[in-house]
């Protein structure tokens, strides 16, 4: 896979980085990423991956866009309320980078089946246990990114390293490593258009979502120290980050034997 003259100009700030170079940019172009959930974390994650030149991006989201989503999820617009969030996200990503192949998947049941067709998964919503199992079986890497209010957590999985199951559901919940809530049942429409009673502070979604995109790019490029074996926690109200170490469990029901 080679780069066109236009691509060399577009990605010039990447290509002059020794850690990326022309070779790394071609790897990014040849890569495929599945982004589950186009909410407050998934929106910036998908937008930055498209901008960075990821060749194929699949957006999975069964939910329709609500007014409350717009207080946190920046990939969408007011005019697209009522549309499916993956479809709305695809429109955004195609505007940012028409060279990328963007697919939108709206079927709620197919998320685990999509994992095998991608190099990296950025999971912000959906059934994370099923995603983890599918990744352990297929060899895909996963970046789990959860955000609620102004806090969030991030964790990366690569085959052979500690997985979500090794952390365990209680410890993951304690660390705030949980899928972002979707659905519009709790929306107070009095505030629609004036900020809204959202579930996630836009900027905290940005912090967690861009960190997830960063990890995805590092996994694609094979550079730096990935966030495997550790959970990064973020508290936006205090602007504090903390790290929690994670070890592999030989009796883990999700990754044992893989």
């Amino acid at each position: 896979m080679s780069l066109t003259e236009q691509e060399i100009l577009r990605y010039s700030r990447h290509i002059i980085l020794p850690e990326v170079g022309g070779r790394g940019q071609k790897r990014i172009k040849a890569s495929s990423v599945l982004v589950a959930g186009l909410g407050a974390a998934g929106s910036p994650a998908a937008m930055y991956l498209a901008a960075a030149g990821v060749g194929r991006i699949t957006l999975w989201d069964p939910a329709d866009l609500t007014a409350a989503d717009l207080t946190g999820a920046i990939a969408h617009t007011r005019a697209r309320i009522g549309q499916n969030r993956a479809e709305s996200g695809r429109a955004k990503l195609e505007g940012i980078n028409p060279d990328a192949e963007i697919n939108a998947v709206t079927d709620p049941d197919v998320l685990p089946a999509l994992v095998a067709g991608h190099q990296v998964v950025v999971a912000t919503t959906g059934d994370w246990t099923a995603v983890q199992s599918a990744a352990a079986a297929s060899g895909a890497a996963v970046v789990f990114a959860g955000v609620h209010g102004a806090s969030g957590a991030l964790f990366a999985y690569r085959p052979g390293e500690p997985c979500l199951g090794c952390i365990g559901p209680d410890a993951a919940a304690d660390a705030g490593l949980l899928p972002e809530e979707t659905g519009s049942g709790d929306v107070d429409t009095r505030f629609a258009g004036s900020g809204g009673v959202g579930r996630v502070v836009s900027a905290a979604g940005g912090v967690i979502g861009t960190a997830a995109a960063t990890e995805a790019l590092k996994l694609i490029l094979g550079i730096g120290t990935p966030l495997t074996g550790r959970i990064l926690r973020y508290d936006g109200w205090d602007a504090r980050f903390r790290e929690v170490r994670v070890t592999r469990r030989s009796d883990c029901s999700l990754c044992a034997g893989n």
Binding site: S12, L17, E19, T210, L217
Partner: peptide, 12 residues
Amino acid sequence: GVIGVLPGFVGS
């Protein structure tokens, strides 16, 4: 050079 997602994180 700059990795593209970096200003996204710092800006957020």
